[in-house]
Design a binder for these strands. Structure first.
Lengths: 249, 249
DNA sequence: TATGAGGGGTGACGTGGCGTCAGGCTCAAG
DNA sequence: CTTGAGCCTGACGCCACGTCACCCCTCATA
């Protein structure tokens, strides 16, 4: 089965011009018929779908190209990440909706809002860092995707479970009012590093400390971790930080 | 309370450049201090918030300007519409997520999807129609935004005044119990059409009759017009309608 | 056999929403 | 009195296309 430009256009909702543009910049390049007409095949269509997923998330065409053309590109992995990012995007809209609701209320009551509350959810810079963290082309990322490519759904389950177990262990300490710089917490922090190293990428001290920061700065991580206990992300972050304050002494 | 450019930038997450751009195109125009520095006041901030809500929904800056500068603009009403549109947008993302999930499943099972199912939720044309329906009517709307782009604040004042004068004239007739099919009312209806044609878009009889409908159907218009006289919107609407019943005879 | 509509193609220029300088003024702090 | 941070105004650059001009091909209908 093959398609002409117009057919693909109606199929995707894009314009023929857009399709020719994507061809011109090497993003989606159909083969050609004898009369030089573009001929889209199944792989072209699938790639086009990928492109549109990423475009929905606001990636530039250049970025999309480098993601899709990455030698370490793994489709399933990418799709899962996309799903995550899209649900995040939904969350983002929810935040804006909250702000909007507050604004409506304030307006109905004739009250003026505090200006700092008027722009919750709009700030994109934090979100950009997240995406950088998710898709960024650091070596850690590449190593991670190389490894995660091979994981089966059962592997993922196991990984999730090990994470959960560790988080619960942290939470037990926290519930017993064990301070984050307690040796037991430090041991767990070490286990945490090994867990990452085992399943994702070599977790150097720098990266580990980076994670500690992300865990408290990034709502996404925070919420996820905090499902295992209140304020748990902060606690874990402190434990990790202490691990390196200790060793540096 | 006032703000400098940088402060607004950090407050909103926009860049100073963007703020200066919005000023340049007349979208959000702060006043100036003696040293020519931009000074953002509370109204500026509120307008900026409006702009960002609409931008989130993908409106162009020109469209946003013509929405916010609409003489019949009603903030509360607009906020409610925004809320609707944002929840719609969430639904839109859900559709894409469904498509994504199907794609993931197909990929995991090694099946190829039906190509027509691969782009569900992407097609923007339907969504555009919705938006068109909610915020603006077709070519007349576009012409209007083309023209209104060039208007200065003084122009707007003049336009508002001419509208007000006309509405008051209608109201005088109504107060004197002049029926809407009286020649004097018909004359005012003609003036109304010319006023629209002059400042916004070529007001054909069809469009004018459309306006007559909108004036009684759309709360927003009704409320605005009725500030010039009780039930005035209905009266004007009737006068317009009669203008064409007459000429068609 | 002409013809006209509807598809295809390649330049090339226009546009919107900024980013990114360059060059110069202002102002508080040291 | 310098210095650095922040402000200003042009002016150019860039991306993702829209739009237009001009030409080719094909197929149904006159």
């Amino acid at each position: 089965m093959t398609w002409t430009t117009k057919e693909v256009a109606t199929l995707t909702g894009l314009t023929p011009r857009t399709l020719r543009h994507y061809d011109a910049i090497g993003l989606v390049c159909p083969s050609r018929a004898e009369n030089d007409y573009r001929v889209y095949t199944q792989p072209n269509i699938e790639r086009l779908q990928d492109v549109m997923f990423y475009r929905e998330l606001g990636f530039s065409l250049h970025e999309i190209a480098s993601i899709l053309d990455d030698p370490d590109y793994n489709k399933l992995d990418a799709l899962l990440k996309l799903r995550l990012a899209l649900t995040e995007r939904k969350q983002h809209i929810n935040t804006i909706l909250q702000t909007l609701n507050q604004t409506i209320q304030a307006h109905q009551q004739g009250v003026t809002m505090e200006s700092k509350d008027m722009f919750n959810g709009f700030d994109a810079s934090l979100h950009e860092e997240e995406t950088q963290h998710t898709w960024g082309h650091t070596s850690a990322y590449k190593e991670s995707s190389r490894r995660t490519q091979k994981y089966t759904p059962e592997d993922w389950q196991k990984i999730q479970q090990e994470h959960a177990t560790l988080y619960d262990a942290f939470n037990t300490l926290k519930q017993n009012n064990t301070p984050p710089d307690d040796p037991r917490a430090t041991r767990l922090a070490l286990q945490h590093r090994e867990l990452i190293s085992n399943y994702f990428y070599t977790c150097t001290p720098e990266i580990h400390q980076g994670l500690a920061l992300i865990y408290v700065q990034d709502e996404r991580f925070q919420k996820n971790i905090n499902t295992h206990g209140e304020e748990l992300a902060t606690y874990i972050s402190q434990a990790i930080t202490h691990l390196y304050q200790q060793t540096s002494k």
